[in-house]
Design a protein around this nucleic acid. Structure first.
Lengths: 212, 212
DNA sequence: AAATCCATCAGGAAAAACCCTGATTATTTT
DNA sequence: AAAATAATCAGGGTTTTTCCTGATGGATTT
């Protein structure tokens, strides 16, 4: 019997998926949660660890990305199968970096889900040709206009720059002098090859580094 | 036995919902479709008419709105229950105009769906206080935090402001003096109640006036 | 130990953004 | 005809952003 857990804020979807999966002989849903924070809470307790976690990306409080990252950082021995409607690109790559074992869109059929579950249970992963092709396409695109390497502090600043705060407000919030903020700002402009703050915001957004 | 049909492009969701509903004694899913055009096709044949149609809004080819309108226009004796993740917009209002019998978000539980199904079967409608309150709130919000009325030229400028162009570049592109651009800019800031260009960009984006 | 990174800061100066108080002309409303 | 509105522009002033050339102390690498 393979244990499965679900994290999805669409409760009906969760509930009905439970019914669907529990109908299978080999699988059993041991718990469901409706946001990322709950998920991490559950997963913190070893007794709760499922063999497979079906994870949605769009969730309140903490999203699926954060859950996946947390799992990766804490080396939880759980096979994460992402199940989302974000066909959106940037997420896929980050998910892969966090070592998820499969990526399904909600537009797939129940049959394909079963396939995926069995595959993950047996081989530890599930990537269809279509998905991998799509991934490849996107990685290719990414390779060209790469995401530059950012220092921690720069990442923080980047988030703040994508708000309507002035630099002095940001400096306060980050407990830095305006000079330092300016230094990081210049560095970000250069790394992203933009000429002003709006350009930076737009690029960061298109690369999926900020959510507007 | 009450007949139910489903229209939702998320196949797993559909499939699992079928499992869930067929588990009930009183309900039976007679067909499912994955886009609006298929739905209309099915519904054109009287033999296929279900008593309740669970309808998603976001679908390819034709969306749920169009299906609802078509049903309304052709006076099909089907109780439409909208089941969607669009918590926002104008959609709710339009759906009401098309006479749908209930409006559920996918964040509700399976239990609430059962309630809704029973209620629609028995009383012909299902609107919980929460839903109606939410609807009211959203209509109210739309009224208050309305999208301000913009002159044509202001709309154009708004688009340009959401790029990395400087004002002088925008002035050139719009064949205006910088003064005029500045006047419109001030007007936009006031109408949207923002204090700088980034704030404007963010607000315009959140109101769906620009696509970043 | 020297060189290289990293995170932090200073000061100055040019450019751009932001704010304000006006004005002209043409059109539309009253 | 007078008033209101729309679309356009000028000028000048303040603040913020952007760009530049530096510097210091700590950590890491060589």
């Amino acid at each position: 019997m393979i244990t499965v857990a679900l994290a999805d804020d669409h409760k009906i979807f969760c509930d009905s998926l439970v019914a669907l999966i529990n109908d299978l002989d080999d699988f059993e849903v041991i718990w469901t949660v409706h946001d990322g924070a709950e998920a991490i809470e559950k997963l913190s307790v070893d007794e709760n660890l499922p063999q497979i976690l079906l994870l949605d990306i769009n969730m309140p409080v903490k999203d699926g990305l954060e859950v996946a990252r947390w799992m990766d950082e804490n080396k939880k021995p759980v096979n994460v199968l992402v199940l989302t409607m974000e066909e959106d690109d940037t997420n896929i790559i980050r998910m892969l970096q966090y070592g998820v074992k499969g990526y399904l869109l909600k537009s797939v059929s129940a049959d394909e889900l079963f396939h995926a579950l069995h595959s993950v249970a047996k081989y530890g992963f599930y990537y269809t040709p279509e998905i991998t092709r799509q991934i490849g396409k996107q990685i290719g695109r990414k390779a060209k206009d790469q995401i530059p390497e950012l220092k921690e502090r720069e990442k923080e600043l980047l988030q703040h720059l994508c708000s309507d705060m002035s630099y002095s407000e940001i400096a306060q919030k980050m407990f830095l002098s305006e000079s330092t903020v300016d230094t990081y700002r210049a560095s970000l402009f250069e790394k992203f090859n933009v000429r002003n703050r709006i350009g930076l915001l737009l690029k960061a957004n298109s690369l999926g580094l900020v959510k507007l």
